[in-house]
Amino acid sequence: MFKTIIVTSLFFGLASLAGPARAEVDEDFMQTVEDTHKSLTSNLTLQNAESSNTDANLLAGYFAEIEEFFVKKGDAQDGVDLAHKSRELVAAIQQTIAINDFGTAVQTSAELGRTCKACHKLYHDD
């Protein structure tokens, strides 16, 4: 019995290292996305490539989760499309950072903000 408890504890402990699976895109998660986007815009304006890349990488993962959320939700094609567009915009930002084109990256980040607002108009519960 003791071995079973140890093995079970080890299994769940290792499973937790893979990271939490987000069951729902909630307010806290969306606030994190918004804060990260603000940080990205600030870092792009300061031409801080390292911090901009960190933020962009986080956003790429966040928008993948959001896209998956809308796919699973069903009957939310606009949400799927806007999340996908956001992922493409983040990829474009990453490419412009790589070539030190921070002017274009800032413009693309502004477009990303507009894409987020469009999605919020459709799906945000006030």
Rank of each mutant, 00 (worst) to 15 (best):
73 K>G: 09
39 S>G: 13
125 D>K: 10
70 F>L: 03
92 A>G: 08
36 T>N: 07
25 V>T: 12
23 A>C: 04
61 G>H: 02
116 C>G: 09
59 L>N: 00
22 R>D: 02
43 N>V: 02
4 T>P: 03
65 E>P: 01
11 F>Q: 04
14 L>E: 01
62 Y>Q: 11
61 G>K: 06
92 A>K: 14
116 C>R: 10
15 A>R: 06
81 D>H: 06
7 V>G: 00
120 H>G: 03
100 N>E: 14
106 V>Q: 14
21 A>T: 10
48 N>Y: 05
36 T>M: 03
24 E>C: 03
20 P>L: 13
94 Q>L: 07
25 V>E: 02
5 I>T: 12
95 Q>L: 12
28 D>W: 03
81 D>T: 13
62 Y>W: 02
28 D>G: 12
44 L>W: 01
78 D>Q: 12
83 A>K: 00
78 D>W: 01
102 F>S: 00
54 T>W: 02
94 Q>G: 05
9 S>G: 13
123 Y>M: 06
113 G>A: 11
37 H>N: 09
77 Q>P: 00
58 L>C: 04
83 A>S: 15
43 N>M: 09
19 G>W: 06
53 N>F: 01
34 E>C: 02
44 L>V: 07
25 V>A: 14
89 L>P: 00
25 V>R: 05
66 I>T: 07
98 A>P: 01
2 F>A: 15
17 L>N: 07
101 D>M: 07
19 G>N: 10
100 N>M: 06
44 L>I: 07
8 T>L: 14
110 A>V: 13
51 S>G: 04
69 F>D: 09
29 F>Q: 04
89 L>V: 04
88 E>C: 03
66 I>K: 04
85 K>F: 02
29 F>C: 04
104 T>M: 08
102 F>V: 02
21 A>S: 09
30 M>L: 14
96 T>N: 15
69 F>M: 06
7 V>P: 00
92 A>I: 05
38 K>A: 15
123 Y>N: 08
48 N>K: 09
46 L>E: 13
5 I>M: 12
